[in-house]
Simulated assay, not measured.
Amino acid sequence: MPDLPLHLWYSITNLGGAGLTLPLAIAIALWLLAGYSWRMAASWLMLLGAAIGLVTLTKIAFLGWGVGVRSFDFTGLSGHAMTSTAVYPVAFFLMLQGVRPTLRAAGVGVGLAIGVVVAFSRVVVDAHSPSEAVTGCIVGALTALVFVRYWWEARSGRISTAVVALSLAAITFSLHNVRVPTHRWVTNIALTVSGHDQPYVRARWKANRTIRTPGTPTAPISQTRDTLTPPAQRHA
């Protein structure tokens, strides 16, 4: 990867943020509903929802109970890596309807490449470990490829490729810097279901050190993973 300035890596990492990828996913579902069928739209939302659920469960498991893999520095799937590798390939698949199969497959490949670059950016900005970025990519890629493979033969003449492309591009440009506090929401859920006052954090978890606080017999001290990482970018 090129040695880019840090602000450019943050710009790349924003391509995987929930404030952008989730609206894109919804727009894709609406186009699928309008141009193909409700089954196609529903299958897309179900696959993506299952992947998002898996990401959320791994994060809750770590934040609430410290469940992870220390040897791989794994504390949960990267949400940015997962959503980018899931959403962008399907976006290209939709935008390239009606073109030659090889060109459409190349478009899906470009979408996957975007997801990989986003995943790499999560490691560069110190928001995730390599294992978290890679596993997030794998889950996202499987989500996209299962959908694309199942619906590869689907045909539609009811929607304009140009209009679809323009609408998805407009969403990408307009929402590129929109940030959603997903990490805070997941942390609140984890604390609620675990009954702890403080979430597990990477540094103390790796050192295997915990302290006692009132009402939480084994709750660790809460601290940010890296004060240089913007809150909206951590662990998403």
Rank of each mutant, 00 (worst) to 15 (best):
L4I: 09
L4Q: 09
L6F: 01
H7R: 14
H7A: 13
L8P: 03
S11T: 11
S11M: 07
I12E: 02
I12P: 01
N14I: 04
N14P: 00
N14W: 03
G19Q: 08
P23S: 06
P23E: 07
L24E: 10
L24R: 08
I26G: 07
L30H: 02
L32V: 06
A34V: 09
S37A: 13
W38H: 14
R39G: 12
R39I: 07
M40Q: 13
A42I: 05
M46T: 14
L47G: 11
A50Q: 00
A51L: 12
T58N: 04
K59G: 12
I60N: 07
A61H: 05
L63E: 03
G66D: 08
G68I: 07
S71V: 06
F72T: 13
D73T: 12
G76F: 05
M82Y: 06
T85V: 10
T85Q: 07
V87P: 01
Y88W: 15
F92N: 04
F93P: 01
G98H: 10
V99W: 11
P101T: 12
P101L: 13
L103M: 13
A106N: 04
V108S: 00
G109N: 10
G109Q: 09
L112M: 11
G115D: 04
G115F: 03
V117W: 07
V118W: 01
A119R: 06
S121V: 04
V125A: 06
V125M: 08
D126A: 13
S129Q: 08
S131R: 11
E132C: 01
E132K: 02
V139H: 06
A141L: 00
L142G: 00
L145R: 03
Y150T: 12
W151A: 00
E153M: 10
E153C: 05
S156K: 07
S156Q: 08
R158G: 14
S160M: 00
A162T: 14
A162L: 15
V163F: 10
V163Q: 12
A165Y: 00
I171R: 05
F173T: 15
L175E: 08
L175Q: 11
N177F: 15
V178E: 02
V180G: 01
H183F: 11
W185E: 10
V186F: 13
T187M: 11
I189G: 01
A190N: 06
L191V: 05
T192I: 05
V193I: 15
V193R: 10
S194P: 10
S194A: 10
D197I: 01
D197K: 09
Q198A: 06
P199G: 06
Y200L: 06
R202P: 01
A203P: 01
W205L: 06
W205H: 08
K206R: 15
N208D: 15
T210M: 09
I211F: 13
R212K: 13
P214R: 15
T216A: 14
T216H: 05
P217Y: 08
P220Q: 08
I221G: 03
R225A: 10
T227W: 06
L228M: 05
L228I: 00
P230D: 02
P230N: 00
R234A: 12
R234W: 05
